[in-house]
Amino acid sequence: MKKVLSVDDSGVMRRIIGRTVEVLGYGFLEAANGVEALEVIARNHEEIALVILDVNMPEMNGFEVLSRLKADPVLKAIPVMMLTTEADRPRIIQAIQAGAVNYLCKPFQADDLTVKIAESLGEGF
């Protein structure tokens, strides 16, 4: 089963994303920080269809995780969606330039999250 990985230091946010991912019929993986994320990705990269990366995390933030993934010849193929706040918008542009496929600003409505994740997975009608 193809899976979506949520990387977020907030357990509440990971749970919200996990449920949305389940709704879309994908499996779910989670990581609470950037280092853990890289481990999970290294172990499961073949079945990961999308990584949803929170920008603001202590230690290794979302941008650093993104640039490590994009620097790896194998892992760079995994689509990444960034989760951010209004205040981070200028930096989001850098993330898109670095290869992120989509982004969503917090706070968001449940329907917008579902549609954004579906878009990032390339699911359309």
């Binding site: 449920r19 389940e22 709704v23 449940a110 579902t114 359309g124």
Partner: peptide, 21 residues
């Protein structure tokens, strides 16, 4: 107009937060 919104609609699957509204 949105293909992704239609995809979700056609699946007809909702999580607890969406179903409760």
């Amino acid at each position: 107009i949105s293909p992704s919104a239609l995809f979700v609609a056609k699946l007809g699957r909702y999580d607890q937060a969406a179903i409760a509204r």
